[in-house]
Amino acid sequence: MPRSRKSQIALEATPYYHCTSRCVRRAFLCGRDEHSGNDYEHRRGWIEQRMQALANVYALDLCAYAVMSNHYHIVLHINAEKANAWTDTEVIQRWHALYAGNFLSHKYLAGKDLYDAQLMVVSELVTEWRERLMSISWFMRALNEDIARQANAEDVCTGRFWEGRFKSQALLDEAALATCLAYVDLNPIRAQMADAPEDSDYTSIKERIDTAQTEPDTAEPAQPKPLFPFVGYPRQDMPSGLPFRLQDYLELVDWTGRHIRSDKRGSIDQQTPPILERLNIDAEHWVYNTQHFESQFKGIVGTVLSIKAQCHRLGYQRTPGLAAATYLT
C-alpha cells in the first residue's frame, strides 16, 4: 500500500529528496520512437529548462538531475530558511510567476488600500503559498503538468503523459546523499547513452563539468548558478550547499563511471577517492549501490542507524531497507 506523501517527505527528517517520474507506456520524453519514427530529443531541453526555471521560483534547490528516454531523475533540497526569509510581497510575486493568484493578492501588490479583513485573507494566502513554494509535491506538479501539456499538444492527443504520482526517496545522511547524487549523474552511462560524464547531455554532472572548465586554473572551480553548489565538508559557519568538495565529487563520479563501464568483476583498484574514506563507504559496495540505488532502497535511504531513527520517528511498525543499508557503508 503506498504511503502518504507526508510520511515520505518530512523536513524534520532530511531536506534532501530523490524524485523520479516515468512516462506511460509508449509515451516518449526524448529520443527516437522506433514504432512511429518520430524524434523527441528536443523534449529533454524542455524539462531541463523547466527544472531550472522552477528552482528560481521555489525554495527548492536543484542538486542533481538526469533526463532519460522515458523518465527523469531529480534530487532536490528543501530550503526552509530561504522560504521563511521571504517577505509577504516576495511570496506573492513568486506565486504570481506561476499562478494567477486572486484579486486581493493583485491589489496588495499594486499598493491599493485593503480592509483589515482583506489583509487577514492575504496573510492567510501568503502562509499557504509560502508552504507550497517549499513543497516538493507542488514543484513536481508544476514540472510534470507543463511538460505533459507541451507533449500532448505536439502529439495532438489528450490523456495521461506521466505514470501516476512521482516516486520519492528521503536521503537521510551524507552517505545516502552522495550515493544518490552519483547514481543520478551516472544514469546515462549505465544506460549506454554516453561514454563519460562530460558527454552526458541534459545532466547536472555535465553542467558542473562544463562550468568548472571555464576557469580551470582557479583554486576553487566555478559552479553553475542554477545548481545547488558544493561548499566543502561540514564545519562551523558553513554556507548553504552540498556538504562535499566539488573536486572530490567530480573525481568520485569519474572513478565510479569507469567501473560501471567495466565488465570485469573485482576491478576495484586501490586508488579510491578520499570522499569514500571520509564517509566510511566500502568501494565495492559503493559501485554496487550506484548501479542499483532505486531497486535497493525504497522510500527512505541511509545507514542502519539513520533508517531506524526515522522509522521510529514516523511510527513505522516495520523497518524497511535495513538489509540494503548494510551495503551503504
Score class of each variant (00 low, 15 high):
79 N>T: 10
292 H>Q: 08
135 S>A: 07
215 E>F: 13
324 A>L: 04
63 C>R: 04
60 L>N: 01
67 V>C: 07
95 W>L: 05
78 I>D: 02
246 L>N: 07
46 W>D: 09
143 L>N: 02
4 S>E: 00
133 L>V: 00
175 A>K: 11
124 E>G: 14
246 L>V: 10
326 T>E: 15
128 E>A: 10
41 E>H: 11
316 Y>W: 15
102 N>D: 15
142 A>F: 05
53 A>N: 06
124 E>K: 14
227 L>W: 07
209 I>C: 05
122 V>M: 07
253 V>P: 06
188 P>C: 05
67 V>M: 12
217 D>P: 00
39 D>K: 05
35 H>K: 15
29 L>P: 01
141 R>H: 09
53 A>P: 04
257 G>E: 04
319 T>V: 15
74 I>H: 01
258 R>W: 06
31 G>M: 08
257 G>S: 04
169 Q>D: 03
163 E>P: 03
85 A>K: 14
319 T>I: 14
100 A>Q: 11
278 R>S: 01
248 D>N: 14
34 E>H: 10
250 L>S: 06
290 T>S: 09
13 A>R: 15
46 W>E: 04
110 A>D: 10
204 S>K: 02
120 M>S: 11
101 G>A: 04
5 R>D: 04
213 Q>I: 03
168 S>I: 07
268 I>T: 09
179 T>E: 09
275 I>R: 03
75 V>R: 01
298 K>G: 12
55 A>F: 05
73 H>R: 05
258 R>C: 03
15 P>F: 04
125 L>M: 14
85 A>P: 02
93 Q>A: 10
202 Y>K: 14
176 A>P: 14
122 V>E: 05
36 S>N: 09
244 F>S: 07
16 Y>F: 13
